[in-house]
């Protein structure tokens, strides 16, 4: 995916922007356009936002303002391992916030960010419906149950080790 981000936006996104430009307040569709790009590419790259700026004639400072204001926009590609911590009520009560803190310190990144080596990214999710297993962490498609803050370093090491094999 990330290689694609340096390329031009795909024709579907361009067609979508063109359709927005036909509407009454074209600039008010900026958020919709950014959503579309995130769906397609997984995040908003600077190159893509630059293209939106030129295509829709909206200054990059404004696009940058919008994309950093809303938490749901990702500004970096997901890591090879996408870590998601459930912050639903059950998980939270059982200490998911402490688990999140442990991931943040271990990886040195915040929610929505990716480690510089591109290996890990961190995000939160809402209730996954497996509250009996709380607190729940998923790494890519794998579910880890009853995770404690203490287990976090070990967990990361094992994922890393598996990746090297």
């Amino acid at each position: 995916m990330s290689a694609e981000s340096n390329q031009h936006l795909d024709s579907e996104t361009i067609a979508f922007m063109d359709a927005c430009l036909q509407k009454e307040h074209p600039k008010s569709y900026l958020i919709a356009v950014l959503h579309k790009i995130q769906q397609r590419y997984g995040y908003l790259s600077q190159a893509h936002m630059d293209q939106v700026a030129q295509h829709m004639q909206i200054p990059t400072s404004i696009i940058s303002g919008v994309s950093t204001f809303y938490h749901f926009f990702r500004l970096q590609p997901r890591g090879k391992f996408s870590i998601s911590i459930c912050l639903g009520t059950a998980c939270f009560v059982k200490g998911a916030d402490k688990v999140l803190d442990a991931f943040r310190t271990e990886l040195g990144i915040e929610l929505g960010e990716t480690t510089p080596d591109g290996l890990f990214s961190l995000e939160s999710s809402r209730c996954l419906g497996v509250c009996a297993l709380a607190p729940v962490v998923t790494i890519n498609d794998k579910i880890y149950s009853k995770v404690t803050a203490k287990q976090v370093p070990e967990l990361l090491n094992s994922v890393k080790a598996a990746a090297i094999d």
Binding site: S61, G65, T68, F69
Partner: peptide
């Protein structure tokens, strides 16, 4: 423009 939000808010050029 104003980037980010809350305590992180900063006024800066794009990106």
């Amino acid at each position: 423009s104003q980037l980010y939000r809350g305590v992180e808010t900063v006024v800066a050029p794009a990106y």
